[in-house]
Amino acid sequence: MIKLKTPISEQEIRKLKVGDTVLLSGTVVTGRDEAHKLMVEQKPDFIREALKEAVIYHCGPVVKKLDNGKWIFVSAGPTTSSREEPFQADVVCEYNIRGVIGKGGMGDKTAEGLKRCGAVYFHAVGGAGTLIANSVKEVKTVYKLEEFGTPEAFWVIEVEDFPVVVTMDANGGSLHKEIKEKSEKIANELMGI
């Protein structure tokens, strides 16, 4: 088990390889479809500082606002990452991001971006909403809440020991590609084609 804390250097991230189990701590920013579209089309600066050498998380949380005005995360597992495939490589390089957390993995364009700019894809356990929310220690701020709604907003959070697995590394390795090729071969055998 590897422990990592943001800010993460390029050197540290390039040491990780497919299959490594990581406990991640530090700053994480949630971003889904609307956020990625915005970051590619308008390159806003308000999120630059939070993302620098930190991690973006494909997640639309269930949140609760306390009486003192503070937010807490109630349930916060990953959403399917492939929807961000058209945007991810550009976002990683533009904002100097070191890690992308999501589920289901991403494609060749992202793999190339991770390699070029020094970042990895961390796979979280899909559906483990309560467990992951328990690793969120603080909600620092939120951007675009009114405009995008709860699931799509940028939530800037502080996490401690968030459990993830490296499934795409900064050297071009991808577990998803391996499993896909292997399972397609077995499927063809089962179907007799």
Partner: peptide
């Protein structure tokens, strides 16, 4: 572990409800 926690805390097991 997540299934047990969600039941105990009465919070959604997955954030996509």
């Amino acid at each position: 572990e997540n299934v047990h926690m969600a039941r105990e805390q009465s919070t959604p097991m997955c954030q996509d409800t």
